[in-house]
Write a protein that binds this DNA or RNA. Structure first.
Lengths: 346, 346
DNA sequence: TTGTATGCGTTATCAT
DNA sequence: ATGATAACGCATACAA
């Protein structure tokens, strides 16, 4: 019984063992429209099992002209933002029988271009780029050339996150999330809000604020600019913003931050100042972390999680499905902290 | 100019544009021992650039009999433990010009077998399995069959974490970490210790304790069993253990936990009881998280981080390098909290 | 329904 | 040093 150079049995080996032609074996083992008589089918299946046959994907890819893989480019897989997207993308790719190739810019997103260039060797059928920021400007138009080139010869490109390229982009439902949060908090009875806005220049942050404002308006509550504090995107930033807020004189029932880390910093400073959270003042946040290190966080922090897994999966679906006219846009999930205005302001 | 079915220019197109034979073009563009005259070399390079040639990896793989990819199987990429390993593995694979295929068991590690089976289609040159627990028993010997089959026909298998299969395994340096932590704390002047041991059945946890004990012994300090508290692996578990410790009567200068989450829980309970951390009692932990959500954690928590990125990279190196006789085993990194016994017991 | 023959893009062998 | 040719493993058009 002849074999591949590395010892793997080939389709021809299966065919010979089953006493049929390679074509018949091919039709049985890999999808084909053509029918095969039951007897032969059985024989081929048994022979394949017996010799331990495994399709040679490279050979199949060459003759079919495409490789069943989707490439995912992330900034840093250790970041929960990217990890959750990767998780969803991988699950969906796997579900469809595709291989997932993981690429990383290692933080330097200008490397996207080189990665895409290198990727083309594989002829993957889809390319998903996950980003926190729109890096088009920095990378120059050569990235776009690469993307368009890829779309022309390989498959579709989908960007998860910020993008200005003329390719399909799936953005986090930040506006909806902000709006939903407003609705939920109004529903709990809150009326006096303060917002800590992080990274003003980032679209996601602004969307959250905009959505929140719209949500409040729907409930007849206004949010004047004077109640919006700019905060640096860090725990320290949250502490500073809280200091500023405290200096202005506490009057809100709840502080809503556009980032969880800022919320954590705020809570820290509030507690330092002698206020109880959420009993004296509640805090709400917005984040993408999966696990909280706090056992009791559920009690004091209301937070929204972007549906990043779903976005990753949607990106793969959209890239692979030719008729992806409507991408089912997942909704953000609200986790309500145990606080209520009654309890807060008691 | 003819092209691949998807529009990608082929090597033959480059050859024609350069006025040379495909063989010559091949020798120039893809590695070959054979030399090519400078003039031809230039022409080929220019032609390739001009037509936008990209190697067809599948075709190359078929004739070479191997695909330049390494497969990584993880439990859940959202988990920092796996994410950090993946980061290192990807970086190393990329550095070597290999593609990284990411596979996930989605928590159900008995799926490892099916994943490996499916992976074989690709003929990747290396397979890295990352695990928190040894899943051999559960998965049965069929996994081992798959692994050995893979090693026979494709490439080497390396397990990062716990394993009992007869394949190369890279374990976290937990013993060394525990020992190093002991040395560091002794160096700071600590003498009276208490240990919170999480997940007693997990090898890593025991190794940390064993290493810690050995490290203490080297400094002439003993750690009787009575000073080792069993804790459930969670924040709540840390709180419970701290309660038990407090009930027994505080006497230690520092609590050393084999898991950061347990340490966090302990700190929480200690502070609730009115003790200041690290001023009244210090706490040390052991973990693999990359970012801390606490701005001030550096001040109060001494912790050890396993070199998971390096382990991931080492796994890829070991799997790819034929002469991988000595894997450079990275050391755990100690982050020293700001506390000292002087400050602690003042 | 089954088998035969050809071609996918690349590289290695073997001439030249 | 360069070019023609066969071969890698598989799928399909076509013949039987």
């Amino acid at each position: 019984m002849s074999k591949e150079p590395n010892g793997t049995p080939r389709l021809a080996d299966v065919a010979r063992a089953a006493g049929v032609s390679p074509s018949t074996a091919s039709r049985v083992l890999n999808g084909s429209v053509r029918q095969v008589a039951d007897e032969y089918r059985e024989r081929v299946l048994a022979a394949a099992e017996q010799v331990g046959y495994t399709t040679n994907l490279a050979a199949q890819a060459m003759v079919r002209g495409r490789y069943p893989a989707v490439a995912l480019v992330v900034g840093d897989i250790r970041d929960q933002f990217f990890a959750r997207i990767a998780f969803g993308a991988m699950r969906e790719a796997s579900r469809r029988g595709y291989i997932l190739n993981l690429l990383s810019t290692d933080g330097d997103e200008s490397r996207e271009r080189d990665l895409v260039q290198d990727l083309r060797r594989q002829r993957p059928q889809a390319l998903v780029l996950a980003r926190k920021r729109d890096t088009t400007a920095k990378a120059g138009s050569r990235l776009m050339e690469q993307l368009l080139g890829f779309q022309r010869e390989s498959g579709r490109v989908v960007i998860v996150g910020e993008a200005s390229e003329p390719v399909l982009a799936i953005r986090p439902p930040d506006f909806d999330g902000g709006k939903a949060l407003a609705g939920a908090l109004l529903g709990l009875g809150y009326r006096r809000f303060v917002v800590f806005l992080a990274d003003e220049a980032v679209p996601s942050e602004r969307d959250r604020l905009d959505g929140f404002r719209v949500g409040l308006s729907a409930g007849g509550v206004a949010l004047p600019d004077s109640r919006v504090y700019r905060a640096v995107h860090s725990v320290a930033g949250g502490m500073e913003a809280a200091s500023a807020y405290l200096a202005d004189g506490p009057e809100a029932e709840i502080i809503v931050s556009t980032e969880d880390v800022v919320a954590w910093g705020a809570i820290h400073r509030l507690r330092e100042s002698g206020l109880a959270v959420p009993d004296d003042i509640a805090v709400a946040g917005y984040g993408h972390r999966m696990f909280s290190p706090f056992a009791d966080e559920a009690d004091w922090l209301t937070t929204i999680r972007s549906p990043l897994e779903e976005m990753g999966a949607a990106a793969v679906s959209a890239a692979l499905d030719p008729l992806a006219s409507d991408i089912p846009m997942p909704s953000p999930k609200i986790h309500l902290g145990g606080s209520t205005p009654d309890r807060t302001m008691r």
